[in-house]
């Protein structure tokens, strides 16, 4: 079984190859597999740009961060992007400690992330 995390999806008008994904709950070692599968399915369905809304992501650990870095790498390989928005203070601190703020595309708001799409 796994910790509770929900992924909610939303299309973005004018960007057919982009999906917004709201992360709700905790991202940890017990659910990275599920999250990996769901995001990979989006990539495989042709959504090469993912905007991850972290407003309701309460928690992330090193395993969760590892998978976020993997999404970023996978998206770039497909000429797309994995952008993160609305990161709460606690989650941001963990990303910062790892030194991953420069490796991940992080935006204050979802709108800013959308505006930055190619």
């Amino acid at each position: 079984m796994e910790s509770q995390i929900e992924l909610e999806y939303e299309d973005i008008k004018g960007h057919a190859d982009t999906k917004m994904v709201r992360f709700v709950g905790d991202l940890d070692a017990t659910n990275v597999e599920t999250v990996l599968e769901k995001i990979c399915n989006l990539f495989n369905d042709g959504f090469i740009n993912i905007i991850a809304d972290f407003k309701k992501l309460r928690y992330v650990n090193s395993t969760g961060l590892g998978i976020l870095l993997h999404f970023s790498k996978s998206a770039k390989e497909k000429n797309g992007s994995f952008k993160i928005a609305n990161v709460n203070e606690n989650v941001y601190e963990i990303i910062e400690i790892i030194g991953a703020t420069t490796l991940l595309e992080i935006y204050d708001e979802v709108d800013e992330a959308i505006a930055a799409l190619k």
Binding site: S62, T63, L65, L69, I98, A100, T102
Partner: peptide, 23 residues
């Protein structure tokens, strides 16, 4: 020394202890 550069290749290995040490 931050481990993030290596993290893209090694996934999350080693990142956990780095977090513990710094917090």
């Amino acid at each position: 020394a931050r481990l993030a550069d290596a993290s893209q290749e090694k996934e999350s290995r080693g990142l956990g202890l780095e977090i513990v040490r710094l917090l």
